[in-house]
Write a protein that binds this DNA or RNA. Structure first.
Lengths: 323, 323
DNA sequence: AACAGTTACGTAACCCGTAATGATA
DNA sequence: TATCATTACGGGTTACGTAACTGTT
């Protein structure tokens, strides 16, 4: 058994069982892959791929399991290289993060700026997407970390650590009737069309709040962008509900920013990563800088938890910062 | 990076950093190993072994981590082979168990007999040792399972599943004053020298029972063997305290067997195995046959627990059989 | 002086790439 | 017929073993 053989079966499985395509991607030849796969199958005494004549038509049950283990083996060989790097070049490496818009725009920048000063040689990669894209990137090992609020798509292979709470804010033009009304009640709010994030979680949370109060809401969702919501609010389309951290007293002088924490319950933002990710020291540092209570020891302890509920109970007593 | 290189560094670490000895054990040459290690170190850009001149004098911090990951990679390659076997030859394989004396002598035989009938082609390996030897065998992957009562030496890499409870019995010669005394109190027992197992756990448990009752005990420990204890009891040396399942009404007709469950609290016997062990179907079957409540699903669920306490709480409500 | 690891070198295995062949949709 | 996997074959790499060398205890 050789590591290349494992690499080949994994990659063939990743490329729709197309050996030619796989060969191209790996910069090698079809026959080479074909032969190595066959050699491995011979050694194991079992077929990994089903064939209809000469075409690979599927993965056998054995193959499924073998490929799964092969994947984890290959990940570990990658870990070994990372470990060596960690010692030889502790300040060289990559930190890649996928996050949702609000986090990328408002929560991450100050942290990343500080991080880049501490580790000028670490290459930063940022990607923005919705919650499920964040999770997909983690799964495919495209990014190391995801920063998001909606844990719906989380799987067991991932760890989600609570970072901070944040509240929604209500924004209206200065001339709006609600601008003078403090405090605002949910009844007040129900009278106007709402504009908020186009996220499954935010959406259901907001609607649920109205349902709980026995009201029906007129909610207009737009595409995930707080700045766009502000624009609509300025046009008088409706009342905006955005993250409080997305408001700025200077830039938003023409708007009135109202505290919504009494109406909408707070959200929690999490940092998520694969349990199998080898955490380099600068990664621990990034996590700590992002969320002060998540020091190296705490993170390591959390990784040992088997499921997210266990992680959450671990942080039950911890007072998170509110943004 | 090649699997052989990983095999070499792991084996050299296992053989006191002696490359020559390692080469002999692996049926290969010293220079071959030396060179491959060097190649790996070059690829990683870091030394795995410390050298004083030309001698390997230690493992570097990087090496420690690399070797640890290499070990798990090699275990997984072994898993792949086992997976293939599981499908191609589901009834062929090995089941090796280390257990303490009483379990090997009284609890395991009927189960193993039944198991051998179900799986005539599985090669059985039995080894007997004290609790710490059982654990050591697991660690070194010499045996698949350990059956024991004392979990003192257990580590996080292992899973211990509770199988059954068992009680101590008191045995005395027919002519002994205690023979007629039913029920027996701890005060009665304190008047005679006791003979019991030479096990850390049994010993402290028994002594603790006396301490809790405010009594001092005169306990003679012998070498772990219930039959030997019976012999001493027959000679009138003292009162025997042995597992109830180690008594036999027919063979021990000359002795009086007294219930001790009111005096000594019950013990729990566990089946222990490495979390990383790939469990073959016949192994699940063995576990179920040994302990009816441990079906495949339950075992898989327990494996997901991170520590033993979690496993134990999982079985809190389960009524275990008493032997 | 005995032992242990590295270097040097020749051989044999093997991985890979090109070309040809066979099978499939 | 075009696509794709397998088989056949040749070349270059490499892993391994023997032998000689060098450093350690």
């Amino acid at each position: 058994m050789k590591l290349q053989q494992l690499r080949y079966i994994v990659e063939v499985a990743n490329n729709e069982l197309n050996v030619s395509l796989t060969a191209e991607k790996l910069y090698t030849s079809q026959p080479g892959i074909s032969k190595q796969i066959k050699l491995l199958e011979d050694e194991l005494g079992a077929q990994i791929f089903q064939r209809s004549g000469k075409h690979l038509s599927g993965i056998t049950p054995i193959g499924e399991k073998v490929i799964e283990v092969a994947r984890s083996i290959l990940n570990k060989t990658y870990d070994i290289k990372v470990i060596a790097q960690e010692f030889t070049k502790p300040n060289l490496g990559t930190l890649s993060i996928t996050s949702t818009y609000t986090q990328a725009r408002y929560a991450l920048p100050p942290v990343l700026q500080k991080f880049m000063q501490s580790y000028p040689e670490i290459a930063l990669k940022m990607e923005q997407g919705d919650s499920s894209q964040c999770i997909t990137n983690l799964k495919n090992r495209v990014t190391d970390f995801a920063v998001l609020t909606d844990l719906t798509d989380l799987t067991d292979e991932m760890i989600a650590l609570p970072c901070y709470h944040w509240n929604q804010a209500i924004i209206v033009p200065q001339a709006h009737p609600l601008a003078q009304k403090v405090p605002i009640s949910i009844e007040d709010l129900a009278q106007y069309p709402l504009i908020s994030y186009d996220s499954a979680k935010d959406g259901t949370d907001i609607i649920q709040t109205f349902i709980n109060a026995g009201k029906s809401a007129n909610v207009i969702f737009n595409t995930a962008d707080a700045d766009l919501i502000k624009t609509y609010v300025r046009l008088g389309v409706g009342v905006g509900v955005i993250a409080k951290m997305a408001t700025n007293e200077v830039q938003d002088q023409d708007l009135v920013i109202l505290n919504a924490s009494a109406i909408f319950s707070y959200n929690t933002t999490y940092i998520v990563f694969l349990r199998s990710l080898y955490l380099r020291n600068y990664m621990y540092d990034f996590i700590s800088q992002f969320s002060a209570h998540l020091d190296k020891k705490t993170v390591n302890q959390a990784i040992l938890c088997t499921d997210t509920n266990q992680v959450l109970t671990m942080f039950n007593g911890v007072k998170l910062t509110v943004k």
